[in-house]
Amino acid sequence: MQDGAKEIACAISTSAMDDLERGPRTHPSEREAQFTRLRDRIEAQAASKYRATEFEGTPPGIVLRSIDFRG
């Protein structure tokens, strides 16, 4: 994720991506294609967490989990 010139580290769990698709677990070799299919939803949620300053880790970044896509 970019905020102007500042790069923000982001990650999403494989479980979150599988839950978003509501199908069987995706094989590791298919993860990139899965991310591409879900990219708009993932980026929208990452942006929402960024605006809410919900950072984790060192250096601070955005981590998305299944719970972030509920409700």
Rank of each mutant, 00 (worst) to 15 (best):
P59T: 05
R65V: 15
P59H: 09
R65L: 08
T36C: 08
E54W: 05
R65P: 00
I42M: 05
R25C: 13
S66A: 15
R25V: 15
G71S: 11
I67Y: 07
L64Q: 02
E54A: 12
D19C: 03
P24M: 08
T36F: 03
I8F: 07
A16N: 08
S66R: 14
I67A: 14
A11D: 04
A9M: 04
A9I: 02
R39W: 09
E32S: 06
G57D: 00
R22K: 13
P24T: 08
Q2K: 14
R70V: 11
T26S: 13
M1H: 12
K6S: 10
A52S: 05
A9T: 07
L64G: 02
R37V: 01
E56R: 12
A33W: 00
Y50G: 02
T58Y: 09
A52Q: 11
A33C: 01
L20D: 05
I62W: 07
L38P: 09
P59Y: 05
A47C: 06
D40R: 08
D19E: 09
G4F: 01
T26R: 15
E54F: 02
L38C: 14
G61Q: 06
I62D: 03
Q45W: 00
H27D: 07
A52I: 01
D18R: 07
E54P: 00
E30T: 06
E7V: 12
C10M: 15
R70G: 04
S29H: 08
T14C: 09
R41I: 08
Y50H: 15
R70W: 09
A47R: 15
